[in-house]
């Protein structure tokens, strides 16, 4: 899967995602549809995709697997929790579309690292091929029409997932995030509440979608994120010390030896090890492995790997077991 790959700026950027919101013409938006109409939308999309892509009705996916996709950030929590919908997905999960989420189609392209251009190429190719067969709701005045007017126009959301432990450590993260917000981009901490995000993972996205060319939106995100990447690298140089090396190796030591590991603790420790790997403090583990463990140690993903349902207690033990095995 793509999230195990290492790519451009992977030391700071975990992944790039572009999402297009599209709706079929002549249908009401999803929240206004009855079951029959929802099924019609599913059928239309199913018939419009080519054999490169799988069409999975979420009724046929068990809950644990579904929520493991949420943990991999491939689908939204709201979508996984509903009963009617489908996922269109390709072999390496680089393209994942949700059918009947808030819009009839939420098409997403993913890349590891900082790779907006290849994401855009992929999503454009898929969406254009769909648009040859399906008529999307679009107006001259407002562009692509979406259920929520915050997405109208281009319908495009570019999101970059960043690992910013050094900026957090030197205490400037909230200042930087404020500046990003002031530039019209949105920021959120990925785990925990915004104010106490753990794991130091943040997602930055464009907020505005109307009256802008796709390239204008992309350029803005590129400029801002490039600046943040440089700031994070500068901060990493600043904090490099024996104390940091000690912290990294302690985190590694716990991961390698713990017998009980909670989800939040695992992510916090993996965040430290990730920083250590990217700063060449620690060479015992590869970045791709750390990246993979950050996804796989989450509750549902872990249960999918263990192929069994686990109680919370069992889960913490299995998590420790899994991490020890991976680091061996």
């Amino acid at each position: 899967m793509w999230y195990k790959e290492i790519s451009n700026d992977s030391d700071v950027v975990i992944s790039t995602r572009i999402r297009f919101a599209r709706n079929l013409d002549n249908y009401k938006f999803v929240h206004m549809l009855n079951s029959n109409e929802k099924n019609e939308v599913l059928d239309k999309v199913k018939n419009a995709i080519n054999s490169e892509y799988k069409f999975l009705d979420i009724k046929n996916i068990d809950e644990t697997t579904l929520f493991s996709l949420v943990e991999g950030h491939l689908i939204s929590k709201e979508f996984a929790a509903q009963a009617e919908g489908a996922i269109v997905i390709n072999d390496d999960n680089r393209l994942v579309a949700m059918v009947n989420e808030e819009d009839h189609l939420r098409i997403q392209a993913f890349e590891p690292g900082f790779n907006i251009d290849s994401c855009y190429k992929n999503i454009k190719k898929f969406t254009d091929s769909l648009e040859e067969k399906l008529k999307f709701a679009k107006s001259k005045k407002y562009g692509y029409l979406t259920s929520c007017p915050t997405n109208v126009g281009s319908g495009m959301r570019v999101s970059i997932m960043l690992h910013l432990p050094a900026l957090t450590k030197i205490g400037v993260i909230s200042n930087i995030l404020e500046q990003v917000t002031a530039l019209g981009l949105s920021v959120r901490g990925l785990y925990g509440e915004n104010t106490s995000a753990y794991g130091n993972i943040y997602q930055i996205s464009n907020q505005r979608t109307l009256g802008l060319l796709d390239t204008e939106i992309i350029d803005k995100v590129k400029i801002v994120v490039t600046t943040i990447i440089n700031e994070e690298r500068k901060a990493r140089n600043k904090i490099n010390s024996y104390k940091l090396q000690d912290e990294v190796y302690r985190a590694y030591g716990i991961l390698k030896n713990a017998r009980i590991l909670k989800e939040e603790e695992a992510l916090k420790l993996l965040s430290k090890v990730r920083l250590g790997v990217c700063m060449n403090i620690i060479n015992e583990v590869e970045l791709s492995k750390v990246q993979q463990m950050m996804i796989d140690t989450q509750s549902n993903s872990l249960q999918v790997i263990c192929k069994q349902a686990l109680s919370e207690k069992e889960e913490d033990i299995k998590r420790a077991e899994y991490v020890r095995k991976e680091l061996d």
Binding site: D25, H31, L145, S147, P149, G153, L210, G211
Partner: peptide, 30 residues
């Protein structure tokens, strides 16, 4: 949320001020 694509036409009198708030612009770039 809006109910259907046509809502954009039905409510167009109120959309300019809404979109100005949300997007800083009122019309599609095309």
């Amino acid at each position: 949320l809006f109910g259907c694509p046509n809502c954009y036409e039905s409510f167009q009198d109120r959309l300019d001020s809404l979109f100005l708030k949300l997007h800083g612009k009122t019309r599609h770039v095309e």
